[in-house]
């Protein structure tokens, strides 16, 4: 183990409201791109059947994490999309 104590988290200088102002349009854009991509896939030939693809199911579970997760949503999604540890 190294001789340095792990530094505490770096406190974001801006408050939550200021960060929402900065990132709202980015989040809106990412959600719209995701929704449009799923629409694109669904309206193509074979689109109804592809919704059962395990990758789509994983993405739906990831959406649930975004809605219900607390604090570490990105880590939870990465764990969902990882091969399990044996």
């Amino acid at each position: 183990m190294n001789s340095f104590n792990k530094q505490a988290a770096l406190t974001p200088p801006k408050n939550a409201s200021e960060l929402l102002d900065i990132y709202f349009l980015d989040i809106r854009s990412a959600l719209l791109e995701s929704a449009a991509a799923l629409d694109r896939i669904e309206r193509a030939a074979g689109g109804k059947d592809i919704l059962d693809d395990p990758r789509i199911q994983d993405l739906k579970r990831a959406c649930n994490i975004i809605m219900d997760g607390k604090n570490n949503r990105s880590e939870q999604i990465l764990l969902l999309l990882s091969h399990p540890l044996e």
């Binding site: 190294n2 792990k6 530094q7 505490a8 988290a9 770096l10 406190t11 974001p12 980015d26």
Partner: peptide, 30 residues
């Protein structure tokens, strides 16, 4: 006790924003 490096790489790895998120969450050492 190891060093951790984060790679900014479109689509398959980290975005600049996620890298900075990790720095805020874990601190800057190592």
């Amino acid at each position: 006790g190891f060093w951790a490096a984060m790679t900014i790489y479109p689509v398959t790895k980290n975005s600049p924003a996620r890298v900075v998120d990790a720095i805020e969450i874990y601190g800057i050492d190592h």
